[in-house]
Simulated scan of single mutants.
Amino acid sequence: MRKNKSKKKRNLWIVIPLTIFAVLVFSIGAYVLSFYVKVKNTVDKEMHEPVESIDISKAKKKLEDLEPLNILLLGVDARAGDKGRSDALMVLSLDPQNNRSQLISIPRDTRTTIVGKGKEDKINHAFAFGGADMSAATVKNLLDIDLDYYVQINMEGLKELVDELGNITVQNEVEWSDSKYNFTKGSLAMDGDMTMAYVRMRKQDPEGDFGRTKRQRKVIEAIIDRGASVGNVPKINSTMEILGKNMATNMEFGDMKQIFSDYSGTRKNMDSYMMQGTGTKIDGVYYLEIPDEEIEKTHKMITEIK
């Protein structure tokens, strides 16, 4: 079992899509009002994409009553000529009554039934088959849970965002090289292209997907640091254009505002967990088999948040 409790506030909003939006909402302070209409229009007209597998009316009622929420987070690696797969797939649970939150990562190679296809496959293939809707339905089926919202961002959007805001700096813990970059231990300054190489690597990481998830968190923290600088306030319009092209969610702007205001205390305590399984090959293809006991354990971790 790998569990990591973070005590640093900025490390707590580690979720790729929500954190990027948080840069826009929290980092610019008094300036945000002057950009209110721009932000609202981008969210409601460009990012807003409902899905049938999530009952939004039920979600809004829970939001109104300040009940715990489950948000599916999809980091999609879509490249030229490819619809993409959800290479980062997490369930974020927010508990406003006890000011805590929980982030559970589902390994992308998890073998499970793809809802709508009627066959077993890697869970990250659900997005390629049927987008966020099929991904949400498949996660709900795997863990036997309700989902209230989803947030999806194309990982290529991270590259554009970093280049727009300026180079970011992270503290790297694992040293490795690829065909283009040397990632030394210690402080690393990275542009958008190097950032993508940094978050995509997993085969040279001794922790595999878990290590890659931690590197994604470091990148998000660095983006927040960069986005929070006063010098980047004038870039709000171009930043919103990048998000409008690369982000999708069934949240409306009002939902986001309420989550950031009424659920902000959940940042005080966050637990992170990655589902565990055993690697296997079937017909030459690698899968991660998650035992029933692990699925039940994860189900309880999510449903017992009250």
Results as ranks from 00 to 15, higher is better:
6 S>G: 06
7 K>I: 12
17 P>T: 09
20 I>N: 07
22 A>L: 05
22 A>C: 15
23 V>P: 11
23 V>L: 13
30 A>K: 15
31 Y>T: 12
41 N>R: 12
42 T>Q: 05
46 E>S: 14
48 H>Q: 06
49 E>Y: 06
49 E>L: 08
52 E>F: 06
53 S>Q: 13
55 D>N: 01
55 D>L: 12
55 D>A: 04
55 D>I: 00
56 I>R: 14
62 K>C: 13
63 L>S: 14
66 L>Y: 12
66 L>P: 10
71 I>K: 03
72 L>E: 04
77 D>Y: 06
78 A>M: 01
81 G>V: 15
81 G>F: 03
83 K>Y: 15
83 K>R: 03
86 S>F: 08
91 V>M: 00
94 L>K: 06
95 D>V: 00
100 R>E: 13
101 S>I: 02
101 S>Q: 07
103 L>A: 00
104 I>R: 09
112 T>A: 04
117 K>G: 00
118 G>F: 09
124 N>P: 08
126 A>R: 02
132 A>D: 06
134 M>Y: 12
137 A>C: 03
138 T>M: 12
142 L>A: 10
147 L>W: 01
148 D>R: 05
148 D>H: 02
150 Y>H: 01
156 E>M: 15
158 L>T: 01
159 K>H: 08
162 V>K: 00
165 L>V: 14
168 I>K: 02
171 Q>M: 15
174 V>A: 12
176 W>K: 11
180 K>Y: 13
186 G>Y: 08
192 G>C: 04
196 M>L: 08
197 A>H: 06
199 V>T: 09
199 V>Y: 05
200 R>E: 00
205 D>C: 14
207 E>S: 05
209 D>L: 10
211 G>Q: 03
213 T>H: 13
216 Q>Y: 07
216 Q>I: 03
220 I>R: 08
220 I>V: 11
223 I>H: 01
223 I>Y: 01
224 I>R: 11
227 G>V: 04
229 S>I: 13
231 G>C: 02
234 P>Y: 06
237 N>E: 09
237 N>C: 11
238 S>R: 03
243 L>K: 02
245 K>N: 14
246 N>Y: 01
256 M>F: 14
257 K>S: 03
260 F>N: 09
264 S>I: 09
265 G>D: 15
282 I>E: 11
286 Y>A: 09
286 Y>T: 08
287 Y>T: 03
289 E>A: 10
289 E>W: 07
296 E>A: 02
305 I>S: 14
